[in-house]
Each structure stands twice: as structure tokens, then as C-alpha cells.
Write a protein that binds this DNA or RNA. Sequence first.
DNA 1: TAGATTGTTAATCGATTAACAATC
DNA 2: TAGATTGTTAATCGATTAACAATC
Lengths: 212, 212
Amino acid sequence: MQDNKISDAVIRRLPKYYRYLSELEAAGVERISSSRMSKEMNLNASQIRRDLNCFGGFGQQGYGYQVLRLKQEIMKILGIGNAYKVIVVGAGNIGQALLKYKNFTNEGYNIVAVFDADEKMIGKNINGITVRPMSALPEFFAVNMIDIGIIAVPKPYAQKTADELVVLGVRAIWNFAPLDVEVRRGISVENVHLSDSLYVLSYHMRENDENH
Amino acid sequence: MQDNKISDAVIRRLPKYYRYLSELEAAGVERISSSRMSKEMNLNASQIRRDLNCFGGFGQQGYGYQVLRLKQEIMKILGIGNAYKVIVVGAGNIGQALLKYKNFTNEGYNIVAVFDADEKMIGKNINGITVRPMSALPEFFAVNMIDIGIIAVPKPYAQKTADELVVLGVRAIWNFAPLDVEVRRGISVENVHLSDSLYVLSYHMRENDENH
DNA sequence: TAGATTGTTAATCGATTAACAATC
DNA sequence: TAGATTGTTAATCGATTAACAATC
């Protein structure tokens, strides 16, 4: 199919296509052309066709793309709906919010355990999942294959947690601590920096002021 | 100072500089060169100097940059530490997590009220802030200048909420609902799509598999 | 067949990197 | 002054966009 390294810019547009196609599907739309997508998504039509062609010829000349087919292809590319096992480390605000968020589970990202360092949290039940002590991590990994580890611990513990998860055999890390965690080649990481987004927002807010 | 439209790529690197400089400051480092920054941040040194020069000549030949000065300049550019008034609409998982998150307050983004549509939530106290009914929004805006509105409502209500906030006079919208809200020119928006980040993570995880 | 729209090549644009003169 | 490092111009690279032949 593909192989010559697809650029990050392309990969990061795929979720937007997925969201848009889901809307179309929900609205009962069967086919879509790159030009209509282009208008509704505020992207260039060439770019859309080029992006999709990185992964295969999903369209048909004179017709466009089948919404359902295209959506499923993108899901396959991104790996949505594959039943991953996920654990959360850190049962604070962010950890709890993620545990309670239904959408991830619906798409195959199943949170199967939570761990926390705080004695007082151990044994608590959050959305049907019991908080385990950090010390229970190794034995848990010994009997469960875990795909994704979510880091929701305070900044000073984030890198150490990442290191431990990698040693224990996690395939990917989704990090919510406000620093970029480093991992060895072969392990995937996404560092989510909510505050970065807030700063960019406040930059633009001020910029709007200047040009009144 | 500047004016010829600075690219989004540059703006989005500023928070990284800010984070890095905060680390240096905490470590007691007084001066920093672009080449050391380059190594430690995995960026090109020319790029760093070029980025910073979009906003002014903060460095000194033969010396480098003063950590404290540079950090403060970036804070000024991004508008960090300015005492903004923020409200949250939606007191669900995400809304509550944001309310409880201390770091934003520390940097001047003060959450002053929460609103929710659910009768049962009204009057509850979350981190010292009482949940108000949605119907109280107009009167609240009548007596409070609000800078930023955080949207943490379910997807079907997100655009409507955005529209209302804009009419009431918000300057910026930080949206956590899983769709891009549209606003008129002059209003800033940041759409945070957590799941997009998860999809990209799962893409890379699969990609790692293929190249075993 | 005529019309529509893709897949893909070629052109353009912008962002990144290299190089170096200016200067502390 | 000599050394270091910036600010900035020039070169390179990659991503976006335009154009169009292929084809349904």
C-alpha cells in the first residue's frame, strides 16, 4: 500500500477526515467529492485527494468517494475500533476525567485499570474501575498485555512513570503531564499539552485587540 | 515591534520555549545560547533565533539570551500572567477537571464561574465555585467582563453555546467538544481534540508494528 | 458519448536550514 | 583584541496548490 514515510501533516489531518465522514454518515450521505469536502472542511481539494492517495485509491473517477468505505479505510489506517487495552496512571483530575469519558471505549480504547501513588485513593471505585497501588503495576503487566499507558501523574513523576511503563512492555504512551516524556525508538508517544493550546489562544486574543 | 503576520508554526513553538525556559530558570541557569537550546529541545538553532527575532532582538551577540528576560518576553507575547476572567460551560468530566486544575489559575487564567444545563448540577460546589444554571449566563455577563469561555458541553450543544458566548461578549473560546466550533472574525478559538491525538498515537503504534 | 471527478505530475509557495557578516 | 554568538540574508527543502490526463 504505502511505505515511503508519510508526513506528520498528513497523519494529523486524518482524524479531521474521520470526524467529517462520521458526520456525513450520520446525515445519511452516501457519496462525497473532494471538492465538496474541500468547501465544507476549508481544505484544498488537491490536498484532500493527495492525502487520501498516500494510502490507496479509494475514490472513483466521475463519482467521488463512498462515504462509508472511505470512513472505514481511515479507521483502518488510524487503527480505530481495534480493541486496545489501556491503563491510566494517576487518578487525579485528568485521570478521572479520562476514565469517565465514554467515547474512547466506544472506539476500542478500553481502559482496564487505574494506578495511583496516593494511599488514600487505593481501592476507590471510579466509573467501575478500582484504583490500584503503583506497586501493583509489575504483576498487572505480568498477566495483561497492555497497549497504551496514559500518564496523568504530576510533572515530577511523569518521566519515571513513562520509563517504568516502557520497561513493563507498553506499546504507546499518551502523556498529559506538562513536559515531553522521552522514550526509546519503537515506542509511540503523544504529549498532550493543554496549556500550550491555552497560550496560543491568549496570543490570538491579544493579536485581535491590536488590529482592533 | 512585529506586524507582518507571524506564522502559526512559530506561534505554536512559543509555549515550548516558555516551558523550556521555565525549566532553566528553576535550575538557576542565567544565560542560554541558541545552540544549547537547539540541542536540548531538538530544534534547529537558526530556527530558534529566527522565531525569537519575529518579536524583537532579545539576544546579545557573543553572549546569548538572558533566561529570565527571554522567558518574560515570551510570556508578554503569549499573554501569560495577565489576569484573564474565564468561565466554564458544562460541569461534566472535562469541565470539572479543568476547574480543579491549579496551573491555569497560577498563570492568570482565573475561572470565575461554571454553568450547566442539568438541574441536578445547579448549586453544587466544585473547587469553591458554585454551578449556575445556563439561564443565568446573560445576567452574569451583564455585570462581568469575561475574556475566555471554555466549552465543555456535549457535542450537540457546542456550537449553540459558542454562539451564545460570542453574542454575550466573550473574546475567545477554548472548545473541548469534539467538533470545530465556528465563530465570527475577531473572536479567537482553539479547538482541542483529545481523540485526534489518541488516533495519531494509535496510527504510530501500528506503524511501529509494521517495521517490527 | 459527455460530464464529472479522480489520481498524479508539475508549479508555487512557505518554512526550515545553512551561512556569514555584524557586534558584543 | 579574539572568541562567541546573534541577527539576517541566501539556499534548500518539503508541503501545498494548480493543472490536466486518465477513466469511471
